[in-house]
């Protein structure tokens, strides 16, 4: 990771719009932003992250929705005493962990590779 070249090295970040990343002066930023590598990285990662976010929202609010609207379904017995709701609740917990794992696995391989390629091509 490149170190804070344009930041105040100690303490505070430089005020924005002045020298941070050379906002206005640095034509590098515009070149990076327009490069196909950057656009591919951002569009792939954004799509992936939002897909997982929506999945998490659906699963969690689906669970809350069942609690709110169909308590009797969650009370259905599966195997003696344990209810369906119990399994769904534990599933929500495991699902959250699984999703973060999927994201990290993908980020560690695909997104980091794209990001490294981008940094190489801009010599940073």
């Amino acid at each position: 990771m490149s170190s804070g070249t344009t930041l105040g090295a100690r303490g505070r970040p430089a005020p924005p719009g002045t020298a941070t990343l050379g906002t206005d002066q640095d034509p590098q930023v515009a070149r990076i932003a327009r490069s196909p590598e950057f656009q591919q990285l951002v569009s792939e990662r954004t799509r992936f992250a939002w897909t997982l976010t929506v999945l998490m929202l659906i699963v969690y609010f689906g669970f809350i929705g069942l609690i709110a609207f169909d308590k009797s379904l969650l009370a259905v017995k599966v195997g003696g005493t344990a209810s369906l709701g119990l399994f769904v609740g534990v599933f929500v917990i495991l699902f959250a962990f699984l999703l973060t794992g999927i994201y990290v696995a993908r980020a560690n391989t695909r997104f980091d590779a794209l990001s490294d390629a981008l940094k190489r091509s801009f010599g940073r």
């Binding site: 990771m1 930041l7 941070t20 990343l21 050379g22 906002t23 990076i32 940094k119």
Partner: peptide, 20 residues
């Protein structure tokens, strides 16, 4: 100014390093 922030937030280029 969003573009510069966007590039840094997505890539870490220019992010403050681990140590002062």
């Amino acid at each position: 100014a969003f573009e510069a922030q966007y590039v840094r937030s997505e890539t870490g280029i220019g992010a403050s390093g681990a140590h002062a």
